[in-house]
Design a protein around this nucleic acid. Sequence first.
DNA 1: CTCCTGACCTGAGTGC
DNA 2: TGCACTCAGGTCAGGA
Length: 283
Amino acid sequence: MPELPEVETVKAALVPVMTGAKVRYAEIRRPDLRFPLPTNLKSFLEGGTITSVKRRAKIILIRAANHVMMLHLGMSGSVRISDHKPNSQPHDHVEIAVEKQGQSHWIVLNDPRRFGYIDLVHERDFNNHKSIAALGPEPVSIADDPEPDNVLDIAYLNKALEGAKAPIKSFLLDQRQIAGLGNIYVCEALHRAGISPKRKAYSVKGKRAARLLPAIQDVLHEAIGQGGTSLRDHKQPDGKLGYFVQSLKVYGREGEPCLACDTPIISIKQSGRASFYCSICQR
DNA sequence: CTCCTGACCTGAGTGC
DNA sequence: TGCACTCAGGTCAGGA
């Protein structure tokens, strides 16, 4: 499911119920997702008080007691929040009950494909964690989270593009270059910027690069404002859909007319993933 | 190094 | 109805 806007939507829903809340119990229903779950996850959570909920790239960071619980939703992960103990659904792997100012909430992680993961690291080791250390800058900063000191700008983008021989599509999916983009928003940003996904990254410069930066930032901001994009699995934690699906210009629109020029949208495979684009508008 | 492929896993959709 | 096959918001190891 989730790229940056979907993860941001989940994080934003967790903030008010988890920040400052005490964990009443945690139920871990299987030993692993993509990786083995930390064996001390249950004992870490139970009785602890959550100090903050943040996001870096596509990872949700839940802090307590000098530790960071890292939650990645993979392709199909989602979170439900309710004010009563929820009925168990297939693939509900973790259930956490929290209490804050006398108010109880239940938080459930569901992940059919189990490409997601949870890890737990001491605060001092966090920046060296292999999922964190190599990440590129955040493409956008939302209400100072993540901290705006590491946000993509045109100087960084131009430098990173230099000498990158991969297609711009692959470049933008690479979390070491820019963190948080995925298949939907790369396709959409390239369409907005008028750049072909097949173009070599190093050849994106000057005016093209100057269009790419705001194209990425605008599409992410707009998607976050709509609660993300619901295709199959993604729902907001309150059960609502992500309405940005209605704003997609190319993703999933193979054969349908380009909204700018009527040319049918093309789908090609690039490094195993579908790229949707307009061969006229994107050069 | 960089770049690409295949693997991981389940469920939904399609075509015969 | 059933079966085989393809495809899906993401990484990650391994090979060229």
